[in-house]
């Protein structure tokens, strides 16, 4: 683990992610864990840009950009082709944002994991369509401002529980991870690498630009999401065996919300309601674990 974190770099400097981009950090950690024998399938998302404009690439592993909704399918194809070629060593990873996972890409993802395709699907979740300029997605949390949920129309619907949706497919491995917990993230990625079949990693990746937070708070906010139980760290094996990986500090959600511009309109009453939602979700998770 030590060596993994401190050596082996698979990203090039000079990529054009926003300052403090959590998604860049997430990719860095993932590739540190998976190593050079990795092929990245990249449906449309912020990383379509971060990966570099022609003729540049910011990744030291092969990449195939794909249509927005096609992450699960393209990866299925790459895996099948590698199998045909007898390459069992290379790990195929779909690296998608929340749009490409929760929304437009959900069909291809569901199809691929139902077939138990042998690949890792990673959703780096920044909770809105950030690449197009902060529009709401089904991952956008209750209470958030986005450019399509402006003013009093702030999102009043819950965030889709994508991990549970994946778990319902009974895939061999599904886990949440967070850029503020690199060791946990790397451990899960390494674990996923050793498992056959469909594996799903849901990585919380903060977005200073879209969340209206100072760039230096990127990790801090991500950590708070775990500390408040808004984004619990857990893993599920074979769709049934739950393990919670982080003993919650149960910080009040208010602390997390008040640091972010996207939530600044929320009243105390709203925050109380959100706290109740978070508590409820956490209790549900505890029951499963």
């Amino acid at each position: 683990m030590e060596q993994t974190m401190h050596e082996n770099e698979y990203l090039y400097s000079g990529h054009v992610a926003c300052s403090g981009c959590g998604a860049a950090i997430a990719m860095r950690f993932l590739l540190k864990a998976l190593g050079e024998k990795t092929i990245i399938v990249l449906p449309a998302c912020c990383w379509s840009i971060i990966a570099g404009p022609y003729p540049q690439s910011s990744l030291k592993v092969p990449v195939i950009h794909s249509a927005f909704e096609a992450g699960g399918a393209v990866a299925s194809g790459v895996r099948a082709a590698l199998d045909v070629k007898g390459d069992t060593e290379t790990t195929v990873v779909t690296w998608a944002g929340d749009g490409g996972t929760f929304d437009i890409g959900f069909q291809a993802l569901s199809g691929a994991v139902e077939r138990n395709e042998d690949f890792i699907y990673v959703c780096y979740d920044n909770e809105a369509y950030m690449n197009t300029g902060i529009q709401r997605s089904s991952s956008t949390p209750y209470g958030a401002w986005t450019t399509t949920t402006p003013g009093i129309e702030w999102k009043k619907l819950r965030k889709k529980n994508i991990v549970e949706a994946l778990v319902a497919h009974r895939i061999p491995y599904a886990a949440t991870a967070n850029i503020a917990f690199p060791e946990d993230l790397v451990r899960k990625a390494k674990k996923a690498k050793e498992i056959k079949g469909s594996r799903f990693l849901h990585i919380y990746s903060s977005c200073p630009t879209g969340w209206r937070i100072p760039s230096e708070m990127s990790i801090k906010i991500a950590r708070m999401a775990v500390q408040t139980n808004i984004f619990p760290l857990y893993e599920v094996e074979d769709g049934v065996n739950y393990t919670i990986n982080y003993k919650s500090k149960e910080y009040p959600v208010r602390e997390y919300f008040k640091l972010q511009g996207r939530f600044k309109h929320l009243s105390d009453k709203d925050l109380e309601q959100i706290q109740e939602m978070v508590n409820e979700d956490w209790q549900r998770l505890l029951k499963k674990a």
């Binding site: 090039y12 990529h15 570099g52 003729p55 540049q56």
Partner: peptide
């Protein structure tokens, strides 16, 4: 459309 050089020629330090 296939990238074959690194992004290192972008000196993003200029953003700082």
């Amino acid at each position: 459309p296939c990238s074959y050089i690194s992004t290192e020629s972008n000196k993003t330090g200029a953003w700082r």
